[in-house]
Design a binder for these strands. Sequence first.
DNA 1: TTGCAATTCAAACACTTGTATGAAACTATC
DNA 2: GATAGTTTCATACAAGTGTTTGAATTGCAA
Lengths: 230, 230
Amino acid sequence: MSSDRTRSAILAAAERLYADRGFGDVTLRDIVAEANVNLAAVNYHFGSKDELIAELFVTRSLATNRERLNELKAAEEKGGGRAPIEAILHALVGPTLRGCLGPDREGSTAARFMIRASIESVPPIRRIKNREVDHLRKFIAAMRRAMPGRDDADLYWGLHFALAMSHHTIREKERLAKLSEGQCDLNDVDAIVERVVSVSVMALTGGEAPTKKAPGKVAASHGRLTRQDL
Amino acid sequence: MSSDRTRSAILAAAERLYADRGFGDVTLRDIVAEANVNLAAVNYHFGSKDELIAELFVTRSLATNRERLNELKAAEEKGGGRAPIEAILHALVGPTLRGCLGPDREGSTAARFMIRASIESVPPIRRIKNREVDHLRKFIAAMRRAMPGRDDADLYWGLHFALAMSHHTIREKERLAKLSEGQCDLNDVDAIVERVVSVSVMALTGGEAPTKKAPGKVAASHGRLTRQDL
DNA sequence: TTGCAATTCAAACACTTGTATGAAACTATC
DNA sequence: GATAGTTTCATACAAGTGTTTGAATTGCAA
């Protein structure tokens, strides 16, 4: 039970290559060349290519999830078991945005890798992402505590939109930069986080009465919310 | 110059297969089998696999863009050259959401194909998407007319978030359905469009003074906007 | 019909992919 | 220092990929 130097070299090389060139056109041979390691070492240490990818992604996303939950827990403890909705959403989108848009920190290969993972959606990663629902439910629960009486569907939509904005910003940051000709500052991550949180909060509170179930007004059918636009 | 029956059979089969199983694991042999056509026919009629994919995507996205611009033009004419921001955003996200979430309409293979294209991001499609910036600029221009004096960066962010919410809803509709255990009605497309538009409008107007450049308050640095959250 | 171009077809090509094999090299324990 | 277990290595394998080829077939005009 020695040399996991090969193992780590493979992990590092794979993450770097995937981050730079995507999953689509990086082969095992590319990886072992970058890692100065024999081709068979991948299957020896990881079993298969997919398991290598899975291990990379699991490691990184566990770290992100831990960070999210820590931030959430801190916010809820500070508020005596009930965090303000801004803090909850901040805990949700902050770690991801900081991780993927932030400055280099350890070369940022991890960040660029996670961006790729968010763009390309290769089978082993998709499988893992599908287990992420439980994690999100914890945030739904916190949101329910923060906004009691609010229709559950609205909470789901709010969380969904918050993730939408942060993920899409990560996925399409080059395009946004190009479209806006640099007028959108994508380096000021904190400002982006605030912007996403701010809009998400408005999505959750702006459209109707700030708390408690709004009395009737629009009929039942299926739990649709009442809105006042258009 | 006859038989483009083979040609169309290939297009139809390819779209159906890509829609169902994604670009990743559909081979030319799958396509020609589904189309009852010889393998060489693809290269004969399209030149290469990538050109086949490109033709499929170009056709569909031109149709969407045309629909968007028609809706925008109609709204601007109705308002004498200046459409309300709600209408502009409606024209932006409506066609895509209706196309990808709407009921079956011609079997909805086109819709499911566009969802795949939005998820998988294969090279030929990426190339085409990168030329979409000009199209989006037309919406930025319309938004500028609707909200004169508003900081350009805010407009870009607003458009970006609108696209974020609609695309993410398309990409992750199964996940949202699963997470919300059916409490989010993903069949009522009009309601979704309204929701997305409503939040986008709030993103553009809610955070600060409704029109004109907000006076100072927070310092200059680089055109960051002033917000009042957290 | 004849002739010619467009189309179809079966077959093979050239290449890349992830994976498996079995021997060699190494490492640590006794 | 021999031995057993782990790790590395060169090499081969089997399968699948998009693409090409050149001969058959078709369809249409002269």
